[in-house]
């Protein structure tokens, strides 16, 4: 195990995780809202926001899927050391991390079932940029409309069509984070 695995965790886990969760919850409750999320320093190429989210939500009960460049030994060691989350293929993942193209196809992830729709995967998408422009968002958590530069509005529109089943998304870029739950109706700009 490389030494980087042991560093970059929360300085004060209970308090840091509590603050991080507040930001994570705020963005999930308000699709399109961008918040700053810091506290962890994951090894490259994972963003600080995605790393902080990982330490806030992952543990031995959450199979995690790393896609593309994120599936590297440094990051695997880091996640193992700090969270103990087991690695899994996308079909068993509770959480999946990666860039959009690496995470595709979306139909490989669990979307829950009618009795337990909550069992759908949460995808954490690393983005080159995060802006409140682009696709128009409507639905719970949004007063009138919101906007976010979604990677593929059509795919996310299709995801929302499956409601109450479906996937939930976080979008991260550096130390910033936004979210798109399955309940949000997406309209391409």
């Amino acid at each position: 195990m490389h030494a980087t695995a042991l560093t970059g965790g929360f300085a004060e886990a209970p308090q840091d995780a509590a603050r991080a969760f507040r930001a994570v919850m705020n963005v999930m409750a308000r699709p399109g809202l961008i918040e700053v999320l810091t506290g962890a320093e994951p090894p490259a190429p994972m963003s600080r926001a995605a790393g902080t989210l990982a330490l806030t939500l992952l543990d031995g009960n959450t199979p995690v899927h790393l896609a593309g460049a994120l599936d590297c030994p440094d990051l695997r060691d880091w996640i193992t050391f700090h969270t103990g989350a087991p690695f899994a293929g996308r079909e068993h993942a509770a959480f999946a991390f990666g860039e959009w193209d690496d995470l595709l196809p979306l139909n490989g992830y669990p979307i829950g079932n009618p009795e337990y729709p909550d069992r759908g995967t949460t995808l954490v998408v690393e983005m080159p940029a995060l802006e409140t422009t682009g696709a128009t968002l409507r639905g719970p958590g949004i007063k009138d409309t919101a906007a976010l530069n979604l990677p593929d509005p059509a795919a996310l529109q299709a995801n929302a069509m499956q409601f109450p089943l479906g996937l939930d998304f976080f979008f991260t870029c550096g130390d910033r984070i936004a979210a798109l739950p399955r309940s949000t109706k997406v309209e391409a700009a």
């Binding site: 999930m28 939500l57 543990d59 959450t62 909550d118 719970p140 109450p164 399955r182």
Partner: peptide, 23 residues
């Protein structure tokens, strides 16, 4: 912390599926 993580995950799913009762 483990209990809080489990509850936090449930809260996020609850927010994503408004009105659905997450076990």
């Amino acid at each position: 912390e483990q209990t809080k993580r489990m509850i936090r995950r449930a809260i996020l799913k609850g927010l994503a599926i408004p009105g659905y009762q997450v076990p």
